[in-house]
């Protein structure tokens, strides 16, 4: 059993059947990469784990999504607690239009942390973990929007870490970034997996090969192949996986 187990998941947006019988397990303290062409349901799967899909109209979920063995769609799990435990980093950096400090403190404040000394500690710790502390420590009161794209994305990672999640969902976190910023985020992900369970959606095959331990190849809402990253990229069992990773389509 993994940290996150997805069992026979079907996802519908109205009539559209977006995910078809997906089963997937994300091991604790490891990085699971989801690869596949656009529109194959990878991002939908991420949003199913933290229930951000609840916002989409006509969205319907069948099957189970287990976090530590507990169904996130069962009645027992509070949605706010779920989202605290499962952090998310978005495709495009989305810092709030406020100071760097307030960005990182937003999550803890949402969960009732008010004491300035406690918040100070959380903010510093989170920014250090996201390896951006040294770049911003002298301008915590400055606007987050003045940071570069790569810095903004690391700030968003710090913001996600500030609520002390157990897992991180990363939705193509580097697709809007330059190569140097991308390298920094990848390095960061490799570091973070020592403490967190990470699921990363990526369009970049090299990225999946570089950072992940397990890889799932998606096509048209189905998991075609799932296995250790080294095995998937060297000896794919399915013809479609091979075609995709060798760049024949996608």
């Amino acid at each position: 059993m993994g940290k996150i187990d997805i069992e026979n998941l079907n996802l519908y947006y109205g009539e559209f059947h977006a995910l078809r019988g997906v089963s997937l397990s994300a091991p604790e303290r490891g990085i699971t990469a989801l690869i596949g062409p656009s529109g194959c349901g990878k991002s939908s799967l991420l949003k199913t784990v933290n229930r951000l899909n609840d916002l989409s109209e006509g969205c319907r979920v069948e099957g189970r999504v287990l976090l530590d063995g507990e169904d996130v769609y069962g009645g027992g799990m509070d949605i706010y607690t779920l989202r605290r435990r499962v952090g998310m980093v978005f495709q495009k950096p989305n810092p709030f239009p406020m100071s760097i400090y307030d960005n990182v403190a937003f999550g803890p404040r949402s969960h009732g942390v008010r004491a300035r000394s406690v918040l100070d500690g959380i903010v510093e710790e989170s920014l250090r973990r996201a390896v951006i502390w040294d770049e911003v420590k002298d301008r915590l009161a400055g606007s987050a929007l003045r940071l570069s794209g790569g810095q903004q994305q690391r700030l968003c990672i710090a913001r996600a870490l500030a609520v002390r999640p157990e897992t991180l969902l990363m939705d193509e976190p580097t697709s809007a970034l330059d190569p140097i910023s991308t390298a920094k985020i990848e390095e960061l992900a490799s570091e973070l997996k020592k403490a967190y369970t990470i699921i990363i959606v990526t369009h970049n095959m090299q990225q999946a090969a570089r950072v992940s331990d397990r890889t799932a190849f998606f096509l048209l809402g189905e998991v075609v192949e799932l296995g250790d990253t080294s095995r998937i990229f060297t000896a794919p069992r399915d013809k479609r996986t091979e075609d995709y990773i060798t760049g024949r389509f996608g």
């Binding site: 951000l52 989202r83 605290r84 978005f90 989305n94 937003f106 999550g107 949402s110 996600a160």
Partner: peptide, 18 residues
């Protein structure tokens, strides 16, 4: 305001109001 701003806050466990 881009939806990403709202979703970003929700993803941190904030309530709709917050």
């Amino acid at each position: 305001v881009p939806e990403a701003c709202y979703e970003g806050a929700l993803a941190l466990g904030a309530t709709h109001e917050r």
